[in-house]
Nucleic acid binder design. Structure first.
Lengths: 150, 150
DNA sequence: CTTCCTGCAAAAGTTTTGCATTAAC
DNA sequence: GTTAATGCAAAACTTTTGCAGGAAG
């Protein structure tokens, strides 16, 4: 995919964090790695699971800082937990397939022309309602193959 | 808009609740009224605010029952609270403009042809990934006019 | 009159905060 | 050396649950 190479992602993350007065510490670098390798949004319990040396409170604080710096974003899945992923300019514009039964979330992309048309229409509608700097969030919610079997 | 008249909404709500073994009580009827008149998703604090005779726990329970019966749905706004609205077959298919700064949420609709194309493409993509019974959720997130002024 | 719903209070579960210690620059 | 980040524990906040009393069918 068109995602930036990992070292470039780290450079960008470091720059943006410094831009908002934060340091690029080991734990923050590690979180970026975890999110970059996941390829799907992760909840804090998922991030903590099987990894040592990460205090829950620090992970919450750091993900929040990464969001503030524009390096990550919080995804709403209807799961009980919030999930996090790298921001789109570090990966690529994509959408989510969310299983309404188990919360499983998969990244998907749509054809370029459809995306462009969507963006135009949404921009028009949003401006008419007085909204500025609008991005869109399009997710599909259904039943994944595992849950359909039950 | 093409929304059903209020009394029809109540009939449908009553039928669907009975269908899952629930009664159509005064409080449930009242919640339907509140959601129907709001024209935008409401959080539980918003529902409780300025209304007497609604116990918080019962509102949580009843909204959950309304969702189970297919009369309402839970909307994720990034606000700290979950918000609820009537299900789309009782109103009409629409989307949300969400202010990332203050959480203000406004309903909007998109052109029919775009919606149809979206549905087709999402259906294809979802099926390819093994998902069934997919609906789409498209929201626009930006800055509302009030927050832009600050 | 039996079953489900309601309200209150308490519990559970996710996220945030205070503070002393440690690491970054 | 100064300022910010970390880990632990405790607190805050949203949502769920237990239970006794009340309403629905």
């Amino acid at each position: 995919m068109s995602a930036a190479r990992e070292d470039v992602v780290h450079e960008i993350a470091a720059r943006r964090l410094r831009g908002v007065g934060h340091r690029y510490t080991g734990q923050r670098r590690r979180l970026i790695d975890i999110l970059a390798r996941a390829g799907q949004p992760l909840s804090i319990p998922e991030i903590l699971h099987g990894r040592r040396g990460l205090a829950q409170s620090s992970v919450y604080r750091n993900l929040s800082d990464l969001v503030d710096a524009g390096v990550a974003r919080r995804v709403l899945t209807g799961d009980e937990f919030g999930k996090y992923e790298l921001s789109e300019d570090l990966t690529e514009h994509h959408h989510h397939l969310i299983c309404s039964s188990c919360g499983r979330t998969t990244d998907v992309t749509l054809p370029r022309p459809l995306e462009k048309r969507l963006d135009r229409v949404i921009d028009d509608v949003a401006h008419a309602a007085g909204f500025a700097d609008v991005i869109h969030r399009l997710d599909a919610i259904g039943t994944c193959s595992d849950c359909a079997r039950r």
